[in-house]
Each structure stands twice: as C-alpha cells, then as structure tokens.
Design a protein around this nucleic acid. Structure first.
Lengths: 196, 196
DNA sequence: CAGATGACAGATTTCAATATCTGTCATTTC
DNA sequence: GAAATGACAGATATTGAAATCTGTCATCTG
C-alpha cells in the first residue's frame, strides 16, 4: 500500500526528483505524473495548482534550513557565542547547498522567489530564533539592547551578504571569511551596547 | 561640426536613449547607428565591440553615483555624522533611480552585471571614500578601529540591503528606514570600538 | 462512493525556417 | 588619406504553426 497509494509526500519527493532532472523551467506536472505512473489529473486531487505544488516544495526546502538552526538557538551557553555559532551554521548550510549542487540551489531559489509567502514565514522563523538568542543574552547581561526584535532584524540584515541567495556568487570570494569577521565585529559591538 | 561629427560621447548619449527605448535585450548596435544616422560600421571605429560600448555606458552611470558622494566624503565635520550622511546619500541616490524609472534601473543593473570590471572599480572607489571618512574619524578619536580598510568594507557590506541593487525590491518595504536605523546603530557602535 | 482516469479548451512552449545582428574589411567619399 | 560605407559570413533572434501543458470535469473502477 505504501508505495502504491498517492500521498502529498510521495508527490513532493517525486517533484523534487523531476525538478532536479529537468530544472524549474522545464519540469511539468505531467512529468511528475509520469514519474509516479499516474494521470496528471490525480496530482490535482492533492495540490490545487502547479504553483501550490511548487510552494510546497519550497516550503519543505526552507524548513530543512530552519530546522537544524532551531537546535542551536535553543542550546545553553553564552548568548554571544551561541549567536556566532548560529550565524556560522546558517552560512555554512547555504554555502554547502550552493557548492554541492549549484543548479539545484538555483532551482530552489527560483521556487522560493515565486513563493513569497513561504519565504516570509521562513524569515520570520529565523528572526524568531535570533530574537530568542538576543533575549537570552539580555537576561544574562551579555547583550544590552532596547528592542530585541529590532536587534534580531538588524543582525540578520547586516549579515545578508553572507547568507542571502542574491549574494551567492560572492561566496566564492577568497576574502569572504575575513569580511564576515569584520561585520561580526560591528554587529557584536552593537549588541553589547558599546555606544549607547 | 559639433552635431555632425561622430564622437564617443555622442555615441554613448544615443546608446542610452536606445537602451531607454528598447531595453537591454533588444537594443542593437544597428539601432544606435540608425538613431545617429550613420552606418553601424562607424560605431566600431570608436568602440571595439558591443560589449565595450555597454561597458562604457555602465561606467558612466556608475560614475554618476560615485561622483556626488565624493563631495560628502571629503567634507568637514565629525566623521560619524559624515559617514551617516554619506550612507544616506548613497541610499537616497539608489532609491531615487529605481523609483524614478524602474525599467531604466533594471537596464543599468543588467549592464553593470555584464561589466564586472566596471563594478569592481566602482566599489573600490566607494570603499576608498568610506575609508577616508573612517581614517578621519580615527584621527579625531571619534572612531577606534585597527584596520580602516577592513572597517570600510564591513560598513559597506553590513548596509548592503539598503543600497545593493539585488535588494531593490525590498526598498518599498514600509519598515526599510527603521531597519536601516537598527543596522546603523550596530555599525556605529562597532566603529566606536564599544566592544574591543 | 472515494479515488483515479483521460478527453478537452485555452494557454504556453517548441521547433525550424526566416530575418536580423555582430564584427570585418575592401571600397568609397570628401 | 582619414573617416565612413555597405556587403559579407557566421552567430543570434524572431516568427508562426504544431506540439505540449494546465486545470476541469464527466466518467470509470474496485
């Protein structure tokens, strides 16, 4: 029954395979149906449109990024070290994905671009994780900020060059790690409240 | 003679008009020649290739951004206020260009994307201007940084969301000014050396 | 009767023939 | 004779007819 019954998860798995093989431009609902050996009409029983199917693929991919970071955000230890580890993990995840399979990375970026809602939820989730670290840091006196949510956004945005897919081409720059170090220094100083 | 003789500047002016009318995909060297009422072979007397012509257009556009900022970087007054004014001017220039004529902005971004060398020189020029402000700030004791060039890069990169064309779509966000304020706070604290 | 099918209309994409463009250069113009 | 021309070869883009795709739904199947 497991490999014969058509479920959303099975459709999503197959859609990823089809996207990997044909790319986001060429992949069609008919291709997915063919790969599953069902009629394309059956896909529409589980997803109302091709766009909804792509949204779901994007959402799952974004969740695979946010999920491992959640563990870091919720860990023990000093908030400044934890924030550093969290950012390094986010950056490493993204770089790993783009280096491991650049075409698939581009595919997922294209999907995400069309699924603005999924991206917004994803960013909100990441901001929530940063805010949790900042809150903890304030409680411990490691950080000193008036508005933790605003500080979380500032940290995320100031480091955009190192994790935002629009900057992926710059991640090959040999100076990228040194650049991150310099930005991290500014960010950390700001969170510690060095200049009220 | 002035309006009959074919000069690089006249070709560049006309190329901009043609790009404005047809966009970067459709504009051809033949279109430029037609607009100038010369044969397209004559264009190749002044520019070795279509790519070189587009490079020159990009370079001129980028210079129009860097030029007014130079005055701010070289002005008197406290370095922190000057850096703030410089960043605000850079951001205002970019926003003005994208709001005033979004299609032409996209055109120039496409040209710049193909003229990596021109972009690198432009960024180096901007980094030089920031470094001059940071150097002045260090001399006055307003800033405290070990490596002014590294600090300049960090300032530029941490604020990328507010001036890098890849983020242009986000400039319509109603919270964009508040976001810049938060990032500016982090950056300023870092430059003042609050957290050694 | 829940779930799958496949034929269908309208929209989108493909493909190959046709036209245009880029860059060169021997010839022409002033 | 310096500057401009226009014909040319090979590369690129356009076009319109044919094929395919999306989304729907009446029908079928177990």
């Amino acid at each position: 029954m497991t490999d014969t019954s058509l479920t959303p998860d099975r459709i999503l798995d197959t859609t990823e395979q089809v996207l990997r093989r044909f790319g986001p431009e060429k992949a069609t609902v008919v291709d997915v149906a063919r790969a599953l050996d069902v009629s394309h009409g059956s896909i529409y029983r589980h997803f109302p449109s091709k766009a909804a199917l792509r949204d779901a693929v994007a959402e799952r991919w974004l969740h695979r990024v946010a999920s491992p970071l959640q563990a870091i955000a919720a860990a023990d230890g000093l908030a400044d070290a934890r924030l550093r580890r969290w950012l390094e993990a986010l950056i490493a995840l993204k770089r790993q994905k783009v280096r491991g399979d650049p075409e698939m990375f581009a595919t997922y970026v294209a999907l995400a671009h069309d699924s603005q809602g999924a991206v917004e939820r994803h960013v909100a989730e990441l901001l929530g994780q940063i805010k949790a670290i900042v809150d903890a840091g304030c409680a411990d006196g490691v950080f000193l900020v008036a508005d933790a949510a605003a500080a979380a956004r500032a940290v995320f945005q100031a480091t955009a060059r190192f994790h935002h897919p629009a900057h992926a081409a710059e991640w090959n720059d040999p100076d990228i790690d040194r650049d991150f170090e310099a930005v991290w220094h500014l960010v950390l100083a700001g969170l510690k409240g060095g200049a009220g």
